[in-house]
Amino acid sequence: MGKHIGKQSAIFDKDIFIINTASTVGKKEGEGPLKDYFDVILEDSLCGEDSWEKAESKMVNENMKLVMQKEKLQFSDIDYIYAGDLLNQSSGSNYAIRDLNVPFFGIFGACSTIGEGMALGAINIESGVGRKILVGASSHFCAAEKQFRFPLGLGTQRPLTSTWTVTGAAALILSDTGKSIKIKGITTGKIVDLGIKDANNMGSAMAPAAADVIINNLKDFNIQPDYYDMIFTGDLGYVGKQLTIELVQKAGYDISKNYTDCGIEIFDKNTQDTHSGGSGCACAGTTFAGMIYDKLKKGELNRILFIPTGALMSPTSIQQGESIAGIAHGIIIER
């Protein structure tokens, strides 16, 4: 069996493969720098439905079916599904999965959800309980803006620190048999809250949690940042990325040479007016399922630390003036 390492990490003894992925994104995401990596680019963000929320569920359902088709599997082959989103009580995932007839763990880690699902799925396989696990995460710009900030019809001006919630769905299949791309270990994040209360500055709220995971991963495994070909955080954007570099630097590690953020990679801020970059469960999810997984398959990357990040807020907590707690989960992936 795997073993606990250091303060927050674990290493797995079993081979836990990521055998396939699927990514579906909206029109704006499909116009960005990663457009060639996505499986499906939607022209209609409503997906033919009459609400943003129904559109997200449809997107999740069809994207999960797509990854199963790519791997030539039936849903009866899947032991468990781990999935979540940003909507109240994870309704985007719940309604997407209700007809699939697969045991289901609904999870919530805000924008870190894909990482949480990968970690829990890997632990499931390591324990011997499951052999094939389906992991998913999604978000929708219009639904998220309505829930957490302002209805789109108000035309509210967004500050430069704000990020753009990615419209998309990501899915991946974990298996105890496969070919080359493995989850070797994890570093589980702690909730870190430095008192940020601005829902339009989530990069600053999440950066301390991301830095904590990076620092503890390096300490737990007694390694330096260049052990990894790349370190990817999830949803910090330009503001959060710079803050993460500075916080990790204070701990004595320089990650500036091999570190980027999915929220920076998925949009072109100069041509797409996304301000600080991208966020949402689908930001890290679709970037991994698209670009990162492709580079791992091609051998352009061989060892990475993937750290989706989440802002653990709710509409109620924001309205009551509560600060935004940050979370991040680190996944060590090797080819």
Rank of each mutant, 00 (worst) to 15 (best):
G84C: 01
Y227L: 02
I41S: 03
L174E: 05
A211H: 01
V67W: 05
L66R: 15
G115M: 04
Q242I: 10
L120G: 00
N201F: 00
G252C: 08
A144D: 12
E246T: 07
R158H: 01
E334N: 14
H275N: 14
A96P: 03
K257T: 14
D13S: 13
G195K: 04
L305A: 10
G117W: 08
M291T: 10
V129D: 02
N94F: 13
N200D: 15
C111I: 02
A205H: 02
D39N: 13
K7M: 14
K269M: 11
T113C: 04
T260K: 05
I245D: 06
I16E: 10
Q69I: 05
I214P: 02
Q74K: 14
D15Y: 08
D44L: 10
I266H: 12
I331N: 13
I307W: 13
G168N: 06
Q74E: 14
S279R: 00
C262W: 11
F17D: 08
G130R: 07
R131G: 14
H140Y: 01
G84K: 01
P159T: 03
A210R: 00
N222I: 01
A284M: 11
N61M: 12
P308I: 09
T309R: 04
I18T: 13
D15L: 04
L134D: 08
A122P: 06
F12E: 14
G117M: 08
S256A: 14
A22W: 07
K146A: 15
G155A: 07
L312F: 03
H140W: 02
R158I: 11
I183L: 02
G240N: 06
G130Y: 13
I81M: 12
E62W: 03
K182A: 02
L100S: 09
Q272F: 09
S180H: 13
D13I: 00
M118H: 01
F232Q: 05
G32M: 09
I181E: 07
S139I: 07
T163P: 01
A311G: 15
Y80L: 15
G326V: 06
N63K: 03
M59T: 08
A328L: 09
I181W: 07
L160W: 02
R303E: 14
G285S: 10
A284N: 09
S9I: 12
H4Y: 14
W164T: 15
I186R: 05
L305T: 08
N61T: 04
G234S: 12
K197T: 14
E56H: 07
I215M: 01
Q224P: 00
F75S: 13
K219S: 05
L120Q: 13
I215D: 02
I327F: 15
L194A: 00
Y37P: 05
K146N: 14
D198E: 10
G121R: 07
D85A: 07
L218D: 07
I125G: 03
Y227S: 06
S276F: 06
I266F: 09
M206C: 08
A282T: 04
D50F: 03
L120Y: 10
K241Q: 14
Y82M: 08
A328D: 11
K146V: 01
G299H: 12
L120C: 03
V67R: 05
A210V: 06
G237F: 09
C47V: 13
N61D: 10
G290D: 09
A205W: 01
K250F: 00
G92T: 13
D36Y: 09
C262K: 12
T316Y: 09
N94L: 14
A209E: 03
G321H: 03
I5K: 10
G32N: 06
G203A: 09
A325S: 15
